[in-house]
């Protein structure tokens, strides 16, 4: 229960540092955030990722992999 090992869930923890003002996706449901990785070999790096759902600065998310980075949204 409470006294289990800390690494028991999948993915790597990351904290949201900044939220881009533009939305993306077919229905505008995806937002782009800059997040700071807290676990794993890329610890401390800040990367740009697309996420679905509502988020605010300071939230923690879990990333499946930390190696790739998403493209910035280009505004026409």
């Amino acid at each position: 229960m409470a006294d289990e090992q800390p690494k028991q869930y999948d993915g790597y923890l990351a904290e949201i540092v900044e939220i881009q003002p533009r939305k993306t996706g077919m229905f505008g449901s995806i937002i782009q955030v800059m997040c700071k990785i807290m676990e794993g070999k890329d610890k401390g790096r800040v990367i740009r990722r697309n996420i679905s759902g509502k988020a605010k600065v300071g939230d923690m998310i879990r990333l499946g992999d930390t190696s790739r980075e998403d493209k910035p949204i280009n505004v026409k």
Partner: peptide, 22 residues
């Protein structure tokens, strides 16, 4: 922890992986 979404480039739909917020 991960989901897919649909993104359109030049008339073709692609499924792309995205993260999920808390």
């Amino acid at each position: 922890i991960e989901d897919t979404t649909r993104i359109r480039y030049g008339g073709i739909n692609y499924n792309v992986a995205v993260g999920i917020s808390a």
